[in-house]
């Protein structure tokens, strides 16, 4: 794998697309959420996510990590009967306000899901989907966007000769990078990654982690993960959640070496579910 060459390409493309960009931070205030018939899934969350850094969200299964993530791009709106209150500021806008244009918000705050979910379309059409929805029609522009996005996720060399074949033929690891490329293609400012590597093999996982590391200068990234080592490796900040509450939020080094809360320590050292 020609790493040198790839890194050079990635740097070049970053220089092009996102030269003078500063991504926004996120401020969560008194966020509570409940699902129908299931009590509250989030309880009074207050959180200040720094801009241009990677924030990991960790915690036991069912503690509300995905739910929290899906608040940032209002994905929970698609679940009938889901109620929430509080505020989330992305930059200056409270995105939970009723007046928010949800489709515009989702183009600012991109999301990658736990299981790769490419569309039943060609590789090219998958990546071009977002830009096309956004009104870009010219083939030259689309070609350029697709190539750049695929290079950004280090997939270009593997698929450039079969852009117009079905995306579902790719391996899971490739599919997940494709989905990431699809998200990057609409140039969001914030990236939400919900256990992006949990269904991948170790090599693909490593690739995704490298990508996160490379992307964090131009995006504000929030990643949910089950894997402590992964959180420690890729993140600058870490939030520990339990039972729908935010237990502790601090710099990753501090959380892993010297947590304040007993529950955090128990979880990190594996003494907890």
């Amino acid at each position: 794998m020609p790493y040198m060459q790839r890194d050079a390409l990635i740097q070049a493309s970053q220089f092009q697309s996102t030269a003078a960009r500063t991504p926004p931070g996120l401020v969560v205030q008194q966020l509570s959420l409940s699902y129908p018939g299931n009590g509250s899934a989030l309880v009074d969350i207050n959180l200040d996510i720094p801009a241009g850094a990677v924030t990991a969200v960790i915690g036991p299964s069912g503690c509300g990590k995905s739910t929290l993530l899906r608040c940032f791009n209002r994905m929970n709106d698609t679940i009938e009967g889901c109620r929430y209150s509080g505020a989330i500021y992305v930059g200056d806008n409270n995105v939970l306000a009723a007046a928010t244009d949800v489709t515009a918000l989702r183009r600012r705050v991109g999301m990658v899901f736990q299981r790769p979910n490419p569309f039943a379309k060609s590789i090219y059409d998958n990546v071009a989907y977002g830009p096309r929805i956004g009104g870009i029609r010219r083939k030259r522009d689309l070609d350029e966007i697709v190539e750049r996005a695929l290079r950004d996720v280090a997939l270009w060399d593997e698929v450039s000769d079969r852009l117009h074949t079905g995306a579902l033929r790719l391996s899971l690891g490739q599919q997940q990078r494709l989905v990431l490329a699809r998200t990057i293609a609409i140039e969001p400012e914030v990236l939400l990654l919900d256990e992006p590597a949990s269904s991948l093999d170790p090599i693909s996982t490593l690739k995704i982690e490298e990508l996160i590391y490379e992307l964090k200068h131009t995006y504000t990234i929030i990643i949910v993960t089950h894997n402590m080592q992964q959180a420690a490796r890729v993140s600058d900040w870490t939030a520990f959640m339990n039972g729908g509450k935010l237990v502790e939020f601090d710099e990753t080094d501090r959380i892993f070496t010297n947590p304040v809360e007993r529950a955090t320590e128990d979880y990190i050292t594996g003494r907890y579910g």
């Binding site: 791009n73 994905m75 698609t78 569309f119």
Partner: peptide
């Protein structure tokens, strides 16, 4: 997840 993937792109 396919529907959500599309919604997530706006």
């Amino acid at each position: 997840s396919m529907r959500e993937g599309s919604y997530a792109l706006g």
